[in-house]
Amino acid sequence: MVRPVIEVCANSAASCVAAEQGGAARVELCAGIPEGGTTPSYGEMVTARRAIGIRMNVIIRPRGGDFLYTPAEIQTMLLDIEAAKAAGADGVVFGCLKADGTIDAERNRELKQAAGSLSTTFHRAFDVCRDPFEALEQIIALGFDRILTSGQEATAPQGAELIARLVERAAGRIVIMPGCGVNENNVAELARRTGAQEFHMSARHRVEGGMEYRNERVSMGGTVTVEEFARDITDPERVARSIEALRHV
């Protein structure tokens, strides 16, 4: 029997450490979680790599929003892939689309070639592409190792039917990894419904910051309300409970 894999979406080096403590097999290191994940700094990559012994993938996404990138943004992504390599990453995570919602094979191929021997995951750009089955075949042809997907729904449990069809259609040619809304309470049922063997989750909890003086009139997000005096970090116990739940599938 294949042992299920838990990948933790880690928003910091500290979350990477917590993910390893909980038993995760791999982390995806990201910044900008409220935007769906953006490329972390080189310093964060190096700090995380030095702190953990499990596999570390790095998201290569220069901004939030859509996945139609300008030539300048592609250049940024190519340089960020080189930074991830230099930092000791095991893999990179990216995805480019055309304006019509199809896979941009040329751009993805360019980034894939830059990644070289690193593992490559096509991220949730897949969830906003026009035809998931056509996209599946193109991504396989490009040589990606896995697709991260919520089944083109708001959460993976909601998209479980499509995820199951993708797992069946992929037939072992690529890993289909459910992500978004996956947690210790639903991962076992998601595994049963989809047949997936890898799962992507954040498993975070809120931690109060250490500031004693707090000016709560000011928001660093301007007109966007954000929590200034607390942060989210991966909870090793939530990771461990997810792994335990999968042992009974």
Results as ranks from 00 to 15, higher is better:
F67N: 11
G32P: 09
P71H: 12
E20K: 00
P34R: 00
M45E: 12
V27P: 07
T39A: 07
Y69D: 13
F67G: 10
P40K: 12
R63W: 03
V17W: 03
I60P: 08
G32I: 09
G64N: 04
L68C: 15
P34V: 03
M56C: 05
I59A: 13
D66C: 13
I59E: 13
R55A: 14
E44N: 11
A25Y: 01
G23Y: 03
A14I: 07
G53K: 13
G43T: 06
E28A: 09
G36Q: 09
D66A: 14
A18Q: 11
A72M: 08
E44V: 13
I52W: 04
P62W: 03
S15V: 10
A18E: 13
A18L: 06
A31I: 00
Y42C: 01
P71C: 13
A48L: 06
I33K: 03
P71K: 11
R61G: 10
L29F: 14
G65M: 07
V58L: 10
A72Q: 12
P71I: 14
A72N: 08
I52T: 06
A24E: 11
I59P: 12
G23I: 04
I54G: 06
I33H: 02
E35V: 04
V27T: 15
L68I: 10
E73I: 06
T38S: 03
I54R: 07
A18G: 02
Q21F: 01
A48E: 06
I60T: 04
M56H: 02
R50S: 15
E20N: 01
R50H: 14
R61I: 08
A72K: 05
D66E: 15
T38P: 03
T70W: 03
P71W: 11
R61V: 08
T47H: 07
A48F: 02
C16I: 06
T38N: 02
M56V: 00
G53N: 13
G65D: 10
Y69R: 08
Y42I: 02
I33E: 02
L29E: 12
G37F: 07
E35Q: 11
T47A: 15
D66K: 11
P34L: 02
E73G: 07
I33V: 12
Y42K: 01
V17C: 05
G36S: 10
A18W: 06
A14D: 11
E20G: 01
A31P: 00
G22T: 05
G32R: 05
